[in-house]
């Protein structure tokens, strides 16, 4: 054991392939859309309900990830994924379609990294040759559950965030040269600073991100400069600012391009999406497209993925509870990044 909640993977499981399926808003407004593997031109993705469309996105991403890895469904051993809908039915149905042994994970928007950690553990234990791991969200399905009907008119503040419609899946295998490998995972604690505004999730999640960040770096014996990228999940413009403030107040050097946030960048900082994107699919879609591709191209040698999640429910919010948050970190290394 390295430190409490920190896992060092001696076998360095690899991410063999990744795939992202996304909806029409992402197609039109996301600068990452060119790197997505399948884009739909309707919210319903040819299905009858939002929840079915949500399921379809997960199924597509699973199939595409296997294709890109040159594998078929019979090569896969497990599906580890989650979403935000009640009881995670979209993931459950997608798991039924794939027929794979399945673990549904709920870490809210931090599911992309908690799924990677789980998949890496399966691989490290020698229990699997290929795990499909990922997370998904669907704007319409999530908004109507957590907030209001889609067509209901209410004024969103500048700190609101837009739930993305996307699913991102990674194929995790035992170590293979030439692919990004998973070196360390830090399982997040649940941090609650007493914030209650569900339209300001970034601010609620930033302390959780900082907690995991500090623990991960201490366990790794690393400094922020050792990473080519430190990319949080969906803190958005406000949460990112707060996270950086916390880091620099604690003496870390916060500089330029190294510090990214998937949610802030997801819609190209377009003000009609307010503070940026959120949702379990947000971090999954960016990690499993842009970040992965940059690692494959050699631009990033060592990357720290920190997906953040707000673990509230509509019920807890209405009962006046605060928003408990978490953040799970995954450190990926590639080539010479290993020796750093």
């Amino acid at each position: 054991m390295v430190a409490r909640g920190v896992i060092r993977f001696g076998s360095r499981p690899a991410i063999r392939a990744v795939a992202v399926a996304a909806g029409p808003t992402e197609n039109k407004h996301s600068p990452f859309s060119l790197q997505f593997d399948r884009l739909y031109d309707s919210d319903l993705c040819g299905q009858k309900t939002n929840e079915q469309a949500h399921r379809k996105l997960i199924e597509d991403a699973c199939g595409l990830a296997l294709n890109k890895a040159g594998k078929t469904i019979s090569d896969a051993d497990y599906l580890v994924c989650g979403d935000l809908v009640n009881e995670m039915t979209p993931s459950n149905f997608a798991a039924a379609t794939t027929g794979l042994p399945y673990v549904g994970l709920f870490s809210a928007c931090a599911t992309s990294t908690s799924a990677l950690a789980y998949a890496a553990l399966l691989s490290e234990a020698g229990a699997s040759t290929l795990v499909l791991a990922g997370a998904a969200s669907h704007h319409n399905a999530i908004e109507r559950q957590f907030r209001y009907p889609i067509e209901y008119g209410f004024q969103k503040p500048q700190n609101a965030q837009w739930t993305v419609t996307a699913a991102g899946i990674a194929a995790v295998t035992p170590h293979e040269e030439g692919y990004p490998s998973i070196r360390q995972a830090t399982i997040g604690r649940v941090v609650d600073y007493g914030l209650t505004d569900p339209l300001n999730m970034g601010a609620a999640m930033a302390p959780a991100a900082f907690d995991t960040f500090r623990r991960h770096l201490e366990a790794a014996g690393a400094e922020p400069e050792d990473y080519d990228v430190i990319i949080t999940g969906d803190l958005g413009a406000i949460g990112t600012q707060l996270f950086r403030n916390m880091a620099s107040e604690s003496g870390y050097t916060v500089d330029g391009d190294r510090w990214r946030d998937a949610g802030k960048e997801f819609y190209g900082e377009d003000p009609s999406f307010f503070a940026g994107a959120s949702g379990a699919g947000c971090s999954a879609a960016v990690y499993f497209s842009d970040v992965y591709n940059r690692m494959m191209e050699g631009e990033y040698r060592r990357a720290l993925l920190m997906a953040t999640g707000a673990l509230l429910s509509p019920l807890s919010f209405q009962q006046g509870e605060s928003i408990p948050c978490t953040c799970h970190a995954i450190e990926l290394v590639m080539g010479e990044g290993e020796s750093r």
């Binding site: 007493g194 601010a203 302390p207 406000i238 707060l242 916390m246």
Partner: peptide, 22 residues
């Protein structure tokens, strides 16, 4: 950073509602 200090920082960073305009 304790809750109180964070809450102060949060209020500084979160954009103010443009009340007059609204």
């Amino acid at each position: 950073m304790d809750r109180q200090a964070y809450s102060q920082m949060e209020q500084q960073v979160t954009p103010k509602v443009p009340l007059g305009l609204n």
